[in-house]
Design a protein around this nucleic acid. Structure first.
Length: 367
DNA sequence: AATTCGTGGAC
DNA sequence: TGTCCAAGAAT
């Protein structure tokens, strides 16, 4: 078989798919979501894996499926419990959308996930990738699930010079992907492409010598693997410095509530400020001084912010000058879902003994 | 079409 | 230490 035949003949595509599946059957990693056929759990895993590395999702998946074993259980759970179970994973709209979709499933879809690509796509938080993944893995439907791995793998197989984050590039990738997708094992094939992209066909140093598709890869043939895929844009990072305040009074800390839309929507957090972000500290607080508690680095989307954490014993009358927030004791603080930066500071506070809580003894504070 | 939405691992 | 970037979706 020549390389040209891979993308022009049905037979070449079938042979390549077969080689990829044989490789996958040998090396597939034992993730917990690969031990179930429950469509609900497969859906949960796919949403958790959006923009999230597999190594980080495993623990969350096990804990989540224990707390919310069915769509019904998820639909009935308080939002705060759901966000607490998601704490640290980021992109919290995913958790809210999961719960919203679970309500739809529990209330109007007979408690079962819809079994077609189009119906899955209609659920909040389910896009083309996730709909394809659930449809193929849980229901055996022959639809592609093209993620960043798939784009990289196929941009190299095709030696695609056009950007994969534009419609033309995406179309080329999806066409070749669909041509190779075997009708009998679509779920395994979709996972095999991702497994290949995650373990061999990686961005920096692809291991072409071990790749089951190297014989039919145009980038391998032309030595252009490191040039693929091409992106039309790369978001540029920005840095800033600021400070975060831990206001202490009567064994309680001050938390403010974030706006109901946008970044960390609706979350509570320790007040912080940095030049490019919202100032948002009440005037009285800008004059407060306290003990330096170290630095934390926060990064989110394209921002990288270094915050100086300051412990502030609160003077009298400050409460009136700091509206929009509240005081929380140790037990409540421990049970709240917090953004990662505030969560790290919370851990520092418990560990340093600056605030106490029953469910978190000093020993437990060592994690 | 271009932005926004988190976080931490890997090198 | 800095940079890239990961089983994307919504707007």
């Amino acid at each position: 078989m020549t390389k040209k035949e891979l993308f022009t003949s049905r037979q070449g595509a079938e042979q390549a798919a077969s080689a990829l599946l044989d490789w996958y059957d040998r090396v597939r990693r034992p993730f917990p979501w690969r031990e179930t056929t429950d469509p609900y759990k497969i859906w949960i895993s796919e949403v958790m894996l959006q923009q999230t590395q597999t190594s980080r999702a495993a623990d969350y998946y096990l804990r989540w499926t224990g707390l919310f074993p069915t769509a019904e259980a998820l639909a009935r759970a308080p939002e705060e419990d759901v966000l607490k179970a998601w704490e640290g994973l980021g992109y919290y709209g995913r958790a809210r959308n999961l719960r919203a979709a679970a309500k739809v499933i529990a209330d109007t879809l007979g408690r079962k996930l819809p079994e077609s690509y189009e119906e899955l796509l209609a659920l909040p938080g389910v896009g083309p990738y996730t709909a394809g993944a659930v449809a193929s893995i849980a229901f055996g439907l022959p639809v592609p699930a093209v993620d960043a791995n798939g784009k990289r793998v196929f941009s190299r197989l095709l030696d695609l010079g056009c950007p994969v984050d534009r419609s033309a590039g995406e179309g080329a990738v999806r066409e070749a992907f669909s041509l190779m997708l075997p009708r009998d094992r679509p779920g395994d094939f979709n996972q095999a492409v991702m497994e290949l992209g995650a373990t061999l066909c990686v961005p920096r140093s692809p291991k072409c010598g071990e790749c089951p598709l190297s014989g039919v890869c145009r980038a391998r043939e032309r030595g252009t693997a490191l040039l693929r895929p091409v992106f039309s844009r790369r978001e540029k990072g920005e840095t800033a410095e600021g400070r975060m305040l831990v206001l202490l009074r009567d064994g309680k800390v001050y938390l403010r509530k974030r706006p109901s839309r946008g970044l960390w929507a609706g979350f509570e957090e320790f007040p912080w400020e940095a030049p490019p972000a919202e100032p948002l500290l009440p005037h009285a607080l800008s004059r407060t001084e306290g003990a330096d508690f170290g630095l934390i680095r926060c990064s989110f989307t394209r921002w990288r912010i270094t915050l100086r954490v300051v412990i502030v014993p609160v003077p009298d009358g400050l409460e009136e000058n700091a509206p929009g927030g509240r005081w929380a004791g140790g037990d409540e603080l421990a049970s709240l879902p917090l953004p990662a930066g505030s969560a790290r500071v919370r851990k520092m506070l418990f560990r340093a003994g600056l605030i106490a809580c029953l469910s978190r003894t000093p020993k437990a504070g060592a994690e």
